[in-house]
Every structure is written in structure tokens, then in C-alpha cells.
């Protein structure tokens, strides 16, 4: 009897260790910080495109945010004036981008918790360093005016992708989800919100 209990305990421990190691890695596509504003159960993002260049403002911005609004993710992104916005989008000139040492990318997103920026550079500083488990109450998205895609579809996706970061989504790292996720690094997975992306948002804000 004692031996059977011991055997059972060993098997249970083994299964538990398997599950823990598996789920620890699986749930790795969201940051520990969350967007601070919710309305009627929806993640509520009030965004201003006022400082975007004509490459991104207008229909590109509208269709970019509609990617989330038309999805099953519990998120609503609305266009508001800059005085009412909680996320501001900017197009940064080539000289300013270079003076800041922001690299060769197309865009990046910066969250703020209170008055603290989660990160001050686009890459290599872990955004969780200063915002782990915090609420993000303001976000800035910077687009690089010297590196603009010809393709409207990519620019729309870029808007949706960077706002995805602001509400706490990381780059999708699951191989099985990468092929169609809008949150895949460098938009390599595609330009539309996938069911995986919807699931990530809805699980995070359940």
C-alpha cells in the first residue's frame, strides 16, 4: 500500500512538472503589464493619429485600428483628438530618428506606467524592466519617416501591430501561430488579426 502511494506520488510529480514546464513556455506571448482602461469589458484604446504623416493618417490609420475592432478580440480602438487620447501616434523625421539612435526599423511602441516609460529604446531593453505587472496608462507609437512601405496594407498592419504592443502583446513566438499572427515580429506572419491574436487578448483580459 505504502509503495503504491509512493509510486502514485512520483507519477503525479512527474506530470505536474511536465505541465508546469509546458505552460510556462506556452504563455509567453504577452507582457506582464496591462492596458489600464476598460469599458464594458472591452480594452478601451483612445488613439490620436494627429501627428502621423499622410502615409499613415486617414484611411491607413482607420483601417489599421479596424483590424482589431472587426476581430473577436475584446478590444475597441477609437480615434479621438489629441487632447482626449491615451495613445498618440507620431511620424518621426529621419534626422530625429537617427539622432535618437533608433536603428533601421519602421516603427516601435513605447508604453508608460504613470510617468515612467517602460523602455526608452525600441529594442534590447526589456519593456518589463520598469513596468512588470503594471498598468499602462499612456502609449506612444513612433513611425520612421525615412522607412515607409509602399504598401498600404503593410502600413495598416503596422498601426495594428504597434497598438497590439501597447495593450500588452509580445511578438508571437509560437511556430504554429506565427504563420498568420499580426503580432509576429516584423509582420512576417501576415497583416490580419488571427484567432491566436484574439485569443491572446481575450485570455489576458479575461
Amino acid at each position: 500500500m505504502k509503495n503504491k502511494i509512493q509510486q502514485l506520488l512520483v507519477v503525479t510529480t512527474s506530470i505536474l512538472a511536465f505541465v508546469v514546464s509546458f505552460t510556462t513556455v506556452v504563455n509567453a506571448s504577452t507582457f506582464s503589464f496591462s492596458w489600464a482602461y476598460k469599458t464594458n469589458g472591452l480594452v478601451d484604446v483612445k488613439a490620436s493619429p494627429e501627428y502621423l504623416s499622410s502615409d499613415y493618417n486617414g484611411t491607413v490609420f482607420d483601417e489599421g485600428i479596424d483590424k482589431w475592432n472587426a476581430s473577436k478580440a475584446n478590444v475597441i480602438i477609437s480615434e479621438v483628438s489629441r487632447t482626449a487620447s491615451k495613445v498618440d501616434l507620431y511620424t518621426v523625421s529621419r534626422s530625429q530618428w537617427n539622432d535618437n539612435g533608433w536603428g533601421s526599423g519602421e516603427a516601435w511602441a513605447q508604453g508608460f506606467s504613470g510617468t515612467t516609460p517602460c523602455t526608452t529604446t525600441p529594442v534590447f531593453t526589456n519593456p518589463e524592466d520598469k513596468c512588470a505587472n503594471s498598468l499602462i496608462n499612456y502609449g506612444a507609437v513612433y513611425t520612421n519617416d525615412s522607412n515607409v512601405s509602399f504598401w498600404k496594407s503593410r502600413r495598416e498592419a503596422l498601426i495594428a501591430h504597434e497598438i497590439g504592443h501597447i495593450i500588452g502583446l509580445k511578438h508571437t513566438s509560437l511556430i504554429s501561430a506565427k504563420s498568420d499572427s499580426i503580432m509576429t515580429a516584423n509582420l512576417e506572419g501576415g497583416y490580419d488579426v488571427s484567432s491566436y491574436d484574439e485569443g491572446e487578448v481575450n485570455y489576458k483580459y479575461r
Binding site: 511536465f18 508546469v20 514546464s21 516601435w108 511602441a109 512601405s149 504597434e162 509560437l174
Partner: peptide
């Protein structure tokens, strides 16, 4: 258990910790 968990992951899905918010061209 831990080894099997990681082997299962690596066979089915790979996860690379990526904290960047930059979109490269």
C-alpha cells in the same frame, strides 16, 4: 517531467523570448 515538457515544446512549437516592440523592414 520538466525534460518531457521542453522536448514536447521543441517538437511541436518553438518559443523565443522576444521583448522588442520594433518592426524591422
Amino acid at each position: 517531467g520538466v525534460s518531457l515538457g521542453f522536448v514536447y515544446n521543441s517538437n511541436n512549437d518553438t518559443h523565443v523570448e522576444d521583448n522588442n516592440t520594433l518592426t524591422a523592414p
